[in-house]
Every structure is written in C-alpha cells, then in structure tokens.
Write a protein that binds this DNA or RNA. Structure first.
Lengths: 224, 224
DNA sequence: TTTATTTAATAGTAATACTATCTTATTAAA
DNA sequence: TTTAATAAGATAGTATTACTATTAAATAAA
C-alpha cells in the first residue's frame, strides 16, 4: 500500500488547482526551487515559465500573481507542519513532551518524512525562513485574511497554544507565545546563518542550539 | 538654546547624503509618508518624485534603489531608538528598571520626544513594524552586512543583551533573547492589528498588553 | 572671466507584470 | 457520432517599473 499525502488547499489561493495537472505540479516544484535560488524579489513568472518550458500566460492561468503563489506555498507549508505536529504528538499525554517535539519540528530541518511527490520539503523550509513573513506583511493582509488565506498558520498557532494551556491552564499568553516560538524558530535560524551577532549560536550553525533556546524560553515562561 | 538631533549615517547607505540638501530631506520625509500609505511593494521612485515635485533621476542621485532607501530608513530608526534607550536608561542602576524601560520604548508608540525636523517618528514606527524585516530578508544580506548597513540594529541588540547580562550574568542567550523581544515588540503589534487570533490581545488593540507579555517573557527567562 | 564641478532636467531602454487573442486539444452533451 | 463547450497552450501586445545616458543650467574655484 502506498500512502500519498494530499493537503486540501483553500480554493481562493489559486485560479486553477495546481495539484490537478502536470503543469500545475511543475509550477509548484519549480517556483520553490527558483525562489530558493534567487529570492522572492527577483522571482518572476517569466523566469519560472522559461525554467519549466512553458509560457508566462500559462502560469497566470494558475495564479493571479507571484504574491498569491507565495501565499499558496506558505499555506501548504503550514498545513504540512500542522499535520506533522499532529502525528508526532498523537497519543502522547505529557504536554512537556509534546511541546518539546513541537519545538523540534519548528526549528530543525525536516528529516525524511514520507514525502509528497512534487514538493521538496527541505528547500521549502529554507524558503519559509527567508520569505515566509512576506506572505502577510502587506497592505492587503486584511482582505487576504478575510479570504482565509492564512488559516493554516493560524490553525497551527492555535494548536500549539492549546498544548501550552494543557500544561498550564493559567498561563496568560498562549497564542502570543505560540506565534513567538513559530516566528523565532525561523528568525533565529536566519540570524544564525546571516547576521550571527544577533544570536548566541556563533558560527557553528547548529540548529539544536535554537531548540535549546526556545525550550528555555517556553518552559520558563509557562512554569506553574 | 535649541537642540537638534543629528544621527550620523553610514556613507554606504546613500550616493549623496540626503541630510545635506533640501531635496534630500524631502526624499526622506515623503518616502516615509508614501511607504506608510501604500506599502513598500507599491512604492516607486516615480511616485515619490511626483509627490515631491522633482524627477525620478533626481531621487536616483541620492539612493541607488528603493531597497537601499528602506535600509537607510530602518537604520535611522534603529540608531534613533538606541539613542532613546541610552537617555532613558542613563544613570539608572537597577537592570530591572532599565529592561522595563527598554521594553516600553520598543513596544509602544513614540511619545513626543524632541523631534527631528524631517522625520515623522510616529509614522516611521508604523513602517518599521510592517516593512522593517524586509531590509535584511534578502539574498544580498551578507554583502549588505559586510558594508555595515545593519550596524545600528546589531548595536541596539548588543546594548539590550548587555543589560540582560547585568541582571543575570549566567543567562545563556542574551543576544537571542534581545533580538526576540525586538522583533516580537513589532510582530505582536502587527498581529494584534491585522491577524489578532495570533495573539492574546484581542481587538482592543492596547499596546500596553504587549508590554506586559514581553516583560513576562523576559523576566521569567532571565530569572536567577 | 574662464574653467571646472556639481546639480537638475530630458529622454531614453530593458525588464516586469500583466492582458487579450487565437489556436488546438479534450471532454461532455445532444 | 456529431456538435458544443471547456480547457490548455502559444503569440503578441501594453502599461509600468527600474533604471541609464545625455544634455543643460547653476554654482564655485582659479
């Protein structure tokens, strides 16, 4: 039996569902590679089309613009991460163990989970670190949010917040602490690799130190 | 006697020093207004030139491109904030009081300090919240960093890290905690106003709650 | 006063972010 | 089975963006 992970995406994220055609899957695969290689700013549908071997207009039939494609990619990532959090915390009673696993999932490079065919999760993780916040740091967040485009991110945040409250029901800031560790798992990684003096992790670039920092931050904060 | 605050900016940030001409000052003033109004993505030198009443080429004589102008603006902000941290923590012995003041300076809208003539600090604060991270989240961070463009940010982070160590010399992550509270002071504000379910601050949009959250985060973490 | 230097205005260009149209292939209904 | 509808693909175009190059005017130095 072969299991294939299928993530149900919000219909408003695209014009045509990229999962339902070969071209669509190529768009996702190659856009992740291109954004990783050159960054989101210099990423264009023209370059993507050339990379795939199709035309610009072909891409535009799937996505309204490159920003929507970025939201699609980030939404996919957060959905996938929530799924991984679910399977890794399932059947575990102790919220301390759960939170430790969550922090590890947030802050370390993905091991080989069972993979989806057309997404390279490892490169995707790198993209989210460098480009993820650009999905919502716009003048049209509010409208995008009304279209539920950020639901996967918010769901993950809520899920982690719930585990925090499991441990200490009196803790006052479960959601803010949750969004803090989500963002910091990425920012501290970016800083460590690019602006190391903003961190205490030196040049050895060891992700496990970020895990230790985040665990310390979380468990001292929520201590009963 | 009239005091005028002058912040010495890194020469690599500009082609021609905008502080030294009327046009230069207008560029700073109006770019802050325009970026605040329409966001950094839709901000162009053409629009800025029309706004000021000069030409596009006129702007290009001062700044290489709009991203450099964003770095200039953010660098100015961090320098100014470090200056404010200095005057507000000067002559205070207790690191707890110092840290509380720092958090308040980071997380609340600026009160009327003595103002600089050509910068609207209040709007500037809003810009940093929404656009600040875009200054370094690029493929060319490393080169920009070599040019010292992010020095004001790193200096502020180091300064706050030092106060943390004053309180508890054994705390393991002074710089990471410092960059965490700097970023979170802004992110929690953005979330509160735009994606409120990522926070515990509801719809009342009260900045003082962010201060309470950050104080809790910091003081539980660094407790001896 | 002449010459150099800075500053500003004009006019371009290549690339970007799209849109519109037309053709061909596929599927669905009659 | 034929026709109709729909989708996929390729071609060509446009307005805007992000610049550069050239020329003209103003100012300062010799």
């Amino acid at each position: 039996m072969e299991l294939q992970l299928q993530i149900k995406m919000n219909e408003k994220l695209f014009l045509r569902n990229p999962e339902r055609s070969e071209l669509g899957k190529k768009i996702i695969l190659h856009s992740i590679q291109l954004i990783h290689k050159n960054g989101f700013e210099s990423f264009t549908f023209k370059k993507l089309a050339e990379d795939i071997g199709t035309t610009e207009a072909g891409i535009y039939r799937y996505f309204e613009n490159k920003h929507r494609l970025l939201i699609y990619i980030t939404a996919w990532y957060w959905s996938w991460l929530e799924y991984r959090v679910t399977i890794h915390t399932n059947n575990i009673k102790d919220p301390v163990v759960k939170l430790k696993r969550v922090i590890r999932l947030l802050a370390t490079t993905v091991e080989d989970d069972f993979k989806t065919s057309y997404v390279n999760e490892n490169i995707l993780h790198q993209i989210i670190i460098a480009e993820g916040t650009k999905a919502y740091l716009t003048k049209h967040v509010t409208e995008d949010n009304k279209d539920q485009l950020f639901k996967p991110y918010k769901d993950l945040c809520a899920k982690i917040g719930a585990i925090i409250l499991e441990y200490n029901p009196k803790y006052k800031f479960p959601k803010s602490l949750s969004s803090t560790i989500i963002e910091m798992a990425h920012f501290q990684n970016f800083f460590m690799n690019n602006l190391p003096s903003l961190t205490d992790f030196g040049k050895d670039k060891d992700e496990s130190k970020i895990v230790v920092f985040l665990e310390d931050l979380v468990f001292t904060s929520i201590r009963k």
